[in-house]
Design a protein around this nucleic acid. Sequence first.
DNA 1: CTAATAGTGTCTTTCAGACATTATTAC
DNA 2: GTAATAATGTCTGAAAGACACTATTAG
Lengths: 238, 238
Amino acid sequence: MPEKKPRPRPPVLVAVDLVILTLRGSSFQVLLIERGNEPFRGSRALPGGFLKRVDEDVYDAALRELQEETDLDGAGLHIEQLGFYGKPDRDPRGRVVSMVYLAIAPGLPEPVAGTDATAAAWTSIDEVLSGRVPLAFDHREILDDAIERARTKLEHTALATAFCAPTFTIAELQRVYEAVWGVELDPRNFYRKVQGVPGFIVSAGAERRVTKGRPARLFHAGQATVLHPPITRPETNR
Amino acid sequence: MPEKKPRPRPPVLVAVDLVILTLRGSSFQVLLIERGNEPFRGSRALPGGFLKRVDEDVYDAALRELQEETDLDGAGLHIEQLGFYGKPDRDPRGRVVSMVYLAIAPGLPEPVAGTDATAAAWTSIDEVLSGRVPLAFDHREILDDAIERARTKLEHTALATAFCAPTFTIAELQRVYEAVWGVELDPRNFYRKVQGVPGFIVSAGAERRVTKGRPARLFHAGQATVLHPPITRPETNR
DNA sequence: CTAATAGTGTCTTTCAGACATTATTAC
DNA sequence: GTAATAATGTCTGAAAGACACTATTAG
């Protein structure tokens, strides 16, 4: 990597942003904050911030921002790198490059109240994709990438369980796939496929559940991270 | 992203590194340079360098480094983001974060002679993975990620054609899959599958080729970027 | 002719999608 | 009993893997 002799370096700021996706009821949502400062004051944006210390790990910085701006504990969450966004004109104040992390959270009962930043609120993905909620900077493009990533990873990895509580029913798992993919699935085929993937879900004892009909068995995530065979997405919506 | 008030920022250097993969004969190879400066003087490393100007696009910087260090023209190459590497201790000289790009090149006849940097040489992937060629910094980890990315993308995208010349035979395309995956494939099933993917490869007129046996038809890459159905990788080697 | 590479067809198993049926609860 | 949700089974067509066979060249 560094092969050049020392020379004046351009001042580049490194930011860390977060795309936090969740499922609340049957609605696929993302956590957005309302910007309190210029530029884009009053617009919605992804939560994030700059690196604070020289020796701060970028991943740790993501966890810190998560805590500060949304009061979520990253320890139990699924967090992964989404990508790097470095176009020179993406921030009107100067050269800012952003490392973006993708976090998946189980459905949380209340719109999270930000402690440090201004209002943080769960927002429907549909609202954003339709254009009714414009985003600051290049955050719309980032969100598009995050959604595509999530949709693809549902097929090949056990990511869907990250949207669920520690124990869940198969019907709940199906709602994850339906909401993220924006399709309807056949429950009977879904049961067969999900149960046929070794290590995807394991029965959590002979539990039951509150409803009107027949009680459902509870499961928790197995040790598998990649799914063999995969849960394939219908041709529609691709 | 930026939500904090201005405060002293840590000096962070932004580097751009490249993983350039190719196929020479039946050997899967990566372009490495030999470092001329400390740290890791004399070790092999991925080509790369720092951002030169404040307003330089990171993607453009990758193209520039490609040109400077390997004399390759990025215009015809497949280039995509691989990831962001930002651990605070990854460079002993200070805080350096690297944006890494993955480039795929068709088999080039000669080991490329670097113009700007010291010796650049194609190196067998097997040599590196076996540990016989140690890499500087965290470049071994980066290379592992790149290989896994390439292996997965062969299944679902038309990436394999990026390893080939503008026109190629089906047998040549098969050699790409075999070398990158490290497996042997049945030619007859491979023919059937490849031809069955709409838009993957299209016949380039009724051409022929030099060999001893029956001449092969020539193809070029179609307009498809994602493969339906995918070319699935055998269970082995996963 | 033989050797060598290119390409097609056929059989079997496995899996995805469509859909009928049974099971267990609340009322 | 009815309504509602959970779970299993059955049929059909598409696709994957194994493998036999035909086609076209050089010599």
